[in-house]
Design a binder for these strands. Structure first.
Lengths: 120, 120
DNA sequence: CCGGATCCGGTCTGATACTG
DNA sequence: CAGTATCAGACCGGATCCGG
């Protein structure tokens, strides 16, 4: 068995759209990675350096999940040492309104929250 | 120590609004409870009966968290056996745009998703 | 170094049984 | 009906290791 003890992936099918969305992205980290991508980050190290401090094993797992879910895609930007960059698909970019709604809410209701750059 | 082994609550303070929001509500169940409340449910048993099947210990824990976060409030609707009902605060009702954005996304990108009643 | 994979201790989840 | 208790197993976070 070679699967990385962190959950391999099978998605539920609920009749509720919100439930489906949450089944896919309803954890502490996935949407933060999407946020980083929207903010222009694209490499593993950049995600890892975000101030929230995602552990690397979780990061690797979430990137895998997001890719399998069709939210991001990766491409090699260098051979030699093979290095990948990640970018949002259309499906991923369409999450921006969700993040904006979350940011709006937090700005109104969580004291002391600033916004990550160009969102408000 | 009598705390119910399911996490007692202390919230982070990140400068990112999205991160704060996710720290509070970024799990599989919390927003589903909010959805149920928006749909008009108000009692423990109604939440427990939702088709997603939240375990009762998780439900109790999330209700506690949401209350401490000021997203819901509970009130007794019967003495004798004391029974509580839950309702959204303004802070909670303001989550509706987030749920709607999620529903929109899922309707577009998750095949086979319907919407929970009056959302689209 | 960078992008992960692996290991490990501790926490949380999920299923279900139980109680007032 | 509205929760609590219990427990195994999944998952998280931190550290470390490794291949290129």
């Amino acid at each position: 068995m070679n699967h990385t003890h962190t959950s391999d992936i099978d998605f539920e099918r609920s009749p509720c759209a919100v439930a489906n969305m949450l089944d896919l992205l309803g954890d502490k980290w996935s949407l933060l990675i999407v946020r980083d991508l929207i903010l222009g980050k694209s490499r593993y190290g950049e995600f890892a350096d975000s101030r929230e401090g995602i552990p690397t094993n979780i990061l690797a797992n979430r990137l895998k999940r997001l890719e399998m879910a069709g939210v991001i895609k990766k491409s090699a930007y260098s051979a030699k040492p093979v290095r990948y960059q990640y970018e949002l698909t259309e499906k991923g970019r369409d999450l921006q309104p969700v993040l904006e709604a979350m940011a709006d809410w937090a700005l109104k209701h969580v004291p002391g929250a600033e916004v990550f750059s160009r969102y408000r």
